[in-house]
Amino acid sequence: MAETIVLEVARYRPEIEAEPAFENFEVPCRPDWVVLDALNYIKDAIDGTLSFRWSCRMGVCGSCGMMVNGEPKLTCATFLTDYLPGPIRIEPLSNFPIVRDLIIEMSDFMTKLQGVKPWIIRNEDLPVSQGEYRQSPEQLETYKQFSMCINCLLCYAACPVYGLDQHFVGPAALALAQRYNLDSRDEGEAQRLEILSEHEGIWGCTFVGECSVVCPKHVDPAGAIQQYKLKAVTEWFKSILLPRGGRD
């Protein structure tokens, strides 16, 4: 077992540097250490100026996504020993502007998430006093997978369509839209379809499928988008073939 491993960490200090460059750090390579532990070791013992986001260290808050040897990963769930003998190259998530070191700018995603109306839309709300909406385990299962998104943005980093066209709504936001569309309590599909059937919505996706490969929570955004395309086409045919009012 190697004692240490080298991390090639992308550094970018906007106040003094024009562009990012790599800096090497030698860190202990302990069997239970993840990449994030190594970064914290650097911050605590070697260079306090290294900047990165992290919080829960259990793969659920979605803060610590970075490129590890070119692949988008949650660094709290990526073990150093899987990369022996090293070096390991750590970069900020692809396809996003870099704020500093390993920190990306992600407000674009926040705007897009809000844009797809990720909340329950009802024609008429049931008063709380009347109890819960009934939802069978099967109905729950229909959308559950798409509700597991932790907004870690690994899928955006893996998506070449988003890399080439920042207007593309992107995998996570589209999957979350589909999560609400499929929820038996929701009646907002028509509203969302208007937004999602624009060019930068579902039709922007060319089904590279990489988003689903890198998703740490097995959300399968690519699947969500294709299912949505199928639905949109069916709706379109219905609107052509059926007289007004015959549609549901």
């Binding site: 329950i120 709380v128 819960e132 909406y133 009934r134 069978s136 109905q139 729950l140 309590r185």
Partner: peptide, 22 residues
């Protein structure tokens, strides 16, 4: 109970009984 029901109405994916109740 009413707070948890409100969350249900907002879309929280609570586990369900076979009959659809929480």
């Amino acid at each position: 109970p009413q707070e948890l029901l409100r969350l249900e109405h907002w879309g929280c994916p609570w586990n369900r009984e076979a009959d659809g109740a929480v």
